[in-house]
Computed example of a mutant assay.
Amino acid sequence: MKILLVEDDKTIASGLEYSMKQEGFTIILCYDVSTAKRALRETEIDLCLFDLSLPDGSGYDLCKITREKGNIPVIFLTACDDEVNVVMGLDMGADDYITKPFRIRELISRIKSVMRRYGKHSNSKNILELNNIRINTLNAKVYKNDKEITLTALEYRLLLSFANNPGQVLSRNQLLEGIWDVAGDFVNDNTLTVYIKRIREKLEDDPQKPRIIKTVRGMGYKVGD
């Protein structure tokens, strides 16, 4: 598995590179945005680890470029864990974040969790369908009537929760637990309502009368009959 690591602190970077190579990962190490851009153009990357603060830009810049290239998983390495930075990163398409300082085992666990989300280590079906919605879990792409729909990491994770449980009523607590490892303390009941509304606006023909993600009053939500 090939990981692009972009970290300007050379001491931290070399320590991460050594530890992750011991875990069997192939590491492409860059110290700035310009070098990372070249690596993204020239190399097939399986996952990106981006420091937020870089000398010639930010991890946000690289996340945007990565999303334009395709659905490559992105994890932010950040010294900031305030809500604004975290939510901004997740809304831009990042899959997870980890706050410095962190243990290498925690980072490895986050990487494996994100890759499972993308279906890289799963024996489940690669294509999931909900009415006129098709989800390709191999590249984390979502299509409506064969036209690609762009979802944030949280929206995609929520949609997968529904797609993997067709016909089952999922309580709000179940849905919150399903995305907790992505956004931690910044996901609450009100946030869940907002994200379900966003998904409906992107996927439903008439978001006011949803046919894909249905509300089951007093119980939660479900997809399918």
Rank of each mutant, 00 (worst) to 15 (best):
Y118A: 09
G119W: 12
G119S: 08
H121M: 06
N123L: 13
S124P: 00
K125S: 11
K125D: 10
K125W: 00
N126E: 14
N126T: 14
N126S: 13
N126I: 12
N126C: 02
I127C: 05
I127Q: 12
I127D: 03
L128Y: 12
E129I: 15
E129W: 00
E129T: 15
E129N: 12
L130H: 04
N131E: 15
N132D: 15
N132M: 02
I133S: 07
I133V: 15
R134E: 13
I135L: 11
I135E: 07
I135W: 11
I135H: 10
N136W: 01
N136P: 02
T137H: 05
T137D: 03
A140K: 07
K141V: 04
K141P: 00
V142H: 08
V142S: 04
V142T: 13
K144I: 04
K144W: 11
N145W: 00
N145Q: 10
N145I: 01
N145F: 05
N145V: 02
D146H: 10
D146P: 02
D146M: 07
K147P: 01
E148H: 05
E148L: 09
E148N: 09
I149C: 04
I149D: 01
L151F: 09
T152V: 02
T152I: 02
L154I: 15
L154P: 00
L154D: 06
E155K: 06
Y156E: 03
Y156G: 06
R157K: 13
R157D: 06
R157C: 10
L158D: 07
L158E: 09
L159H: 07
L160R: 07
F162G: 03
F162M: 08
A163W: 12
A163R: 11
N164Y: 14
N164H: 13
N165Y: 03
N165A: 12
G167A: 11
Q168C: 07
Q168I: 14
Q168V: 14
V169H: 03
V169L: 02
